[in-house]
């Protein structure tokens, strides 16, 4: 009797966990389904080549927002990826077990949990107020701060996978430690580091909150990096919360483009660079 009870209990719990998994996936398909349905019907060539138009006029697009997002993600990558990789090199290659590295590692973990809007506030007070205007640079800088801890952690994981014997082989050939790191260890871990960087890029490409009061937004093309600039997420936010139906449609189309960007980055990162063994 007892054994039968245990057997049924086992089955029951298995079913409970399957149901939990199904419930977890419903919102994913719900969101993707609606974005696909509403976004596809609103998406056309004008969306990619036109600027936003005044409310009520047809044919508006988000060309400037798409370019703006690309520009700010590029700025963020140029700042965030090198800083993150260098810090990760220190943590794995120079000082793996010291208290300093432990503290830095811990701070990195904690930083990844800081709300992204906080970064927006800090950059606003430190950069926008000092420079006197919103700008693409401020937006890119905010995104870079969000990227840095992500890059550090993923790079560190990948460098740890490189066998110590590879480093010793380098030293034994009379290659200096610095060259061993840059020319032998980093290339060995390159695939994994690129994967991590792409995932970090995907993550910040969809960020809205840190851009609200750093890059602000712009209905036109930004003429320099020192001007307010549009971005896809901020534009989606503004259109979604507006009262106009045409703008709602554009928000769906923008979401579709944004999600495709993010998902493609994720897929490429995970599958093109999948081999993690070294």
């Amino acid at each position: 009797m007892n054994d039968i009870f245990r057997k049924y209990q086992n089955w029951l719990m298995l079913i409970v966990f399957i149901i939990a998994t199904i419930i977890a996936l419903i919102p994913l398909f719900g969101v993707l389904g609606y974005v696909l349905k509403n976004g596809l019907s609103a998406l056309n060539i004008q969306f990619f080549i036109n600027l936003p138009k005044a409310m009520g006029l047809p044919g508006g697009g988000m060309a400037n927002a798409i370019v703006g997002t690309l520009i700010m993600v590029l700025i963020a990558s140029l700042i965030g990826i090198p800083i993150g990789i260098l810090a990760a090199i220190y943590l794995t290659e120079y000082d793996r077990h010291s208290w300093l590295s432990t503290v830095v590692r811990f701070a990195t973990d904690v930083l990844t949990g800081i709300p992204s809007i906080i970064v927006g506030i800090v950059i606003y007070t430190a950069v926008v107020l000092k420079m006197g205007n919103f700008s693409a640079l401020a937006g890119g800088l905010a995104l870079a701060i969000i990227m840095i801890p992500l890059i550090i952690r993923s790079t560190e994981e990948m460098l740890k996978l490189v066998s110590h014997s590879i480093r010793e082989a380098g030293y034994a050939l009379g290659i200096s430690k610095g060259k061993t790191i840059l020319k032998i260890v980093l290339p060995t871990a390159a695939k994994g580091i690129i994967t991590g960087a792409m995932l970090a890029v995907a993550r910040v490409a969809g960020e809205t909150a840190p851009l609200l009061f750093t890059a602000l937004g712009n209905q036109y093309w930004a003429r320099s990096l020192n001007e307010p600039i549009a971005s896809l997420p901020v534009q989606i936010f503004q259109y979604a919360t507006s009262p106009y139906k045409e703008w709602h449609q554009l928000a769906w189309a923008g979401s579709l483009v944004l999600i495709l960007m993010v998902i493609i980055l994720n897929l490429v990162a995970r599958f093109a660079f999948r081999s993690r063994s070294i």
């Binding site: 977890a24 994913l28 719900g30 969809g206 809205t208 936010f237 979604a240």
Partner: peptide
């Protein structure tokens, strides 16, 4: 798929 749930930008959840 579960990780994708985390990859969808916040603003898209808001729109939905």
């Amino acid at each position: 798929l579960v990780e994708m749930l985390a990859a969808i930008p916040s603003v898209v959840y808001g729109l939905w």
